[in-house]
Design a protein around this nucleic acid. Structure first.
Length: 210
DNA sequence: GCGACAG
DNA sequence: ATCTTGTCGC
C-alpha cells in the first residue's frame, strides 16, 4: 500500500461516514483501542471493554503485530488499523461504542482513524486525540467546558476539558454518532484527563510489549 | 520558500 | 509512539 493508494482509500470510504446518532443507541459497553510500539517494528494492539456506568473492565484483548506502514500524519490509520481490527475480533463482549486514540472527522480529508475503524466494522465510534488537528479557543477551566475545533473554516470537533485546569482533549465524530453525544460519552468516561478506555488499553498494550 | 503535521 | 527524575498539588 503506497501513500497515494492510502489517500485514495480514504476518499473512497469517506462518504460512508454517518454523523448522526441512532435514536435507539444505548451505550452500555465501550471499547477503548490503543497501540504500543517497541524499539523495532513490533507493536501490540489492545482493546479493553468497560461498563459505561461503573467503568469496570468487562473484557479485553491484545494482539502482537508489526508496523507495516510508516507514521505519516493524515495516514495514521494505515499503521494501526490492521492490528486494531484483529484485537477487536478477539473480544467476547460486543461493544456499543468505540473510543479511538486519535482523530475522527478532525482530519485533513475528514477521515481519521476513528472514522476508518467505525466504517469498517460498522459500529459507532469517536476519536479522542491528545493534540489538535485544527485551531481552537481555550475552553473554560471547568470540567465539561468545550470550544469548537476548527479546520479550514469547518467545525470538525471540540476541545473538551475533561478535568478542571488540565489541557483539553480533542473529540471528533468517528461514525454513527453526533458531536454532542460523542462529547457526552467521552466525558462520562473521564476520571483523569484521558478517558478510562484510553488509559486502560494503553497500559494493557504496554504491559504486553515485554 | 516556510511552517504545520493524530500516534 | 518513545527516551525519562523529580517535583508540585490535591
Amino acid at each position: 500500500m503506497t501513500p497515494e493508494e492510502a489517500v485514495a482509500e480514504q476518499e473512497r470510504l469517506r462518504p460512508r461516514v454517518v454523523t448522526t446518532t441512532d435514536p435507539d443507541l444505548v451505550v452500555r459497553h465501550v471499547a477503548g483501542l490503543d497501540v504500543s510500539y517497541a524499539d523495532d517494528d513490533r507493536l501490540v494492539a489492545a482493546a479493553v471493554v468497560l461498563d459505561a456506568d461503573s467503568l469496570e473492565t468487562v473484557d479485553s484483548a491484545v494482539v502482537h503485530g508489526r508496523a507495516d506502514f510508516p507514521y505519516v500524519p493524515g495516514l495514521f490509520a494505515f499503521r494501526e488499523l490492521p492490528s486494531l481490527l484483529d484485537a477487536l475480533a478477539k473480544l467476547t463482549v460486543p461493544p456499543d461504542l468505540l473510543v479511538c486514540d486519535g482523530q475522527g472527522l478532525a482530519h485533513p480529508r475528514r477521515f481519521g482513524l476513528a472514522c476508518h475503524v467505525g466504517v469498517l466494522i460498522d459500529l459507532p465510534s469517536v476519536g479522542v486525540a491528545k493534540t489538535p488537528m485544527g485551531r481552537f479557543d481555550p475552553p473554560g477551566e471547568e470540567r465539561g467546558a468545550v470550544s469548537d475545533l476548527v479546520d479550514d473554516g469547518e467545525v470538525v470537533g471540540r476541545a473538551l476539558r475533561t478535568r478542571a485546569g488540565v489541557k483539553p482533549v480533542f473529540v471528533s465524530v468517528g461514525h454513527r454518532i453526533d458531536l454532542d453525544r460523542a462529547c457526552a460519552e467521552v466525558l462520562r468516561l473521564c476520571v483523569h484527563r484521558l478517558p478510562e478506555t484510553t488509559r486502560r488499553s494503553d497500559s494493557l498494550g504496554r504491559a504486553h510489549l515485554r
